[in-house]
């Protein structure tokens, strides 16, 4: 049974890259362009991991994480956030709302896969 990863990013380029890389590594990937869409996708799919950008229209990444953590079913769902550079403030904000970890943009495919394996096997 393939693990299903949801990539949430308003940038099509990023979604494409994440999606392509993870599919190549044997994951199922579903996409959403913002937090709101992501909630919809999670409502309709069993997702094993969420990779979300922070800065997005409609609903940003931190809000998405907060909303997910507020739902019992998703309290332990791995959520990785994408940050540019090593934004300490963003990281601690992310951790504070319950992010599992982070991926620093830009990333190479190998790094992405290794991080994903680290949090969802």
């Amino acid at each position: 049974m393939k693990k299903k990863v949801l990539t949430v990013d308003d940038s099509r380029t990023m979604r494409d890259m994440v999606s392509f890389t993870l599919k190549g590594a044997g994951y199922d990937v579903v996409e959403a362009a913002d937090g709101q869409q992501a909630l919809g996708v999670i409502g309709a799919n069993k997702v094993d991991l969420v990779i979300t950008d922070l800065n997005m229209p409609v609903m940003d990444g931190l809000t998405l994480i907060r909303r997910l953590r507020a739902t019992p079913a998703h309290r332990t769902l791995p959520i990785l956030m994408l940050t540019t550079e090593a934004d300490e403030k963003k990281k601690s904000e992310g951790r504070a709302v319950g992010a599992t970890g982070w991926i620093v943009k830009p990333f190479n495919p190998e790094k992405l896969i290794s991080v994903v394996q680290k949090v969802c096997g």
Partner: peptide, 25 residues
Amino acid sequence: VVAAIPEAPKAEPPKAEAARPRPNG
């Protein structure tokens, strides 16, 4: 921590990738 600006990533694409015909397939 991965630097903000990497050198061109050296990672080989995972093997399974090569068999995939197209991105977004």
